[in-house]
Amino acid sequence: MPLPTAPVLGILADNLRLRGSVMPLSRKKATGWADGLDLPRGGKTVLYTGHLYQLMPSIAALTSKLERFEDSLLNRAMGIGRAVNRKINLSSLMGREDRKVREVCEERLRNIARLVKAAGVNYGYLYEEELYSGALVYDQGLDSTFAEHAAKVAEVFRRNGVETAITVDPHTTHVLRSIFPGIVSDFTLKVRSYLEVLADSPAVPVRPLDLDVAIHDSCVYARGENLVREPRALLERAGARIREPESHGRKTLCCGGPIESLFPARAKAICARRLDELAAAAHHVVAMCPICLMNLEHGAEGRDLTVRDICEPLAESFCGE
């Protein structure tokens, strides 16, 4: 029996309306990754995280809890759970997050911040003013909840005089660049992924990568934003040898991640098929989306395969980290 869709979506929508995020994040969890980086506050160009990396430890914890709910009577309790969640923030109690996962996600954001510096771009950060992008509720067809939230996100950029947002993941890039302009009036923000910023910069590697690598293209980057060239150009500039899996570029195959919370068993089967393709191409795999990464890393356990965020080898090469 799959999870009951309505209460799960209801909890996400209630959280966004009442608490500003699908899974509320404390200030420390939202901005802690930037501690010690001395990023200036605000500015015309900002690094906009959209909170997806910061949400991943909570999503991972919740997903493993829900996975145990699947096929169990307990999943009937989700309806009651939604009613309670309106009063108490239930989602943060539903699963204990792994500290290690949070450290990895925060380090990935720090790598991206360093890479944008290596591209020679001066930028700031909105710290606690930054809001979640709303990407997940958009995907679930909760359109009026999403539209209400998008107006709040746009207002934060306007109030801070931000003209360009540099994004760190495909889902945030896509909603901000391709969906916001259709639903928020006078939305003129320029949106660029950090991969585009770095690929278009003259940044040169300080340490070459001696690596055969398979790229797991994100469906949203490849087909939604036509972002296919940049990861290849950057890895090649760094010295890596690209080994393409059978499905790549605009024909990439989904990792199953988007349905990991609602339909864990289906997500797992789809992930296993994608991992088979990737493993046939190279031992080292890079991905560029925190959702893909969570799913692929989980699926690759016990396989002779290394899955990394593309920002990690790029930071080693371009920043010498």
Binding site: T5, D139, Q140, C219, R223, C254, P258, I259, L262, I270
Partner: peptide, 16 residues
């Protein structure tokens, strides 16, 4: 068929 509708990955391979 709500189950199928909410299982879609929105991966756009079909659209492509």
């Amino acid at each position: 068929r709500a189950d199928a509708i909410f299982s879609c990955l929105l991966c756009r391979l079909c659209e492509e």
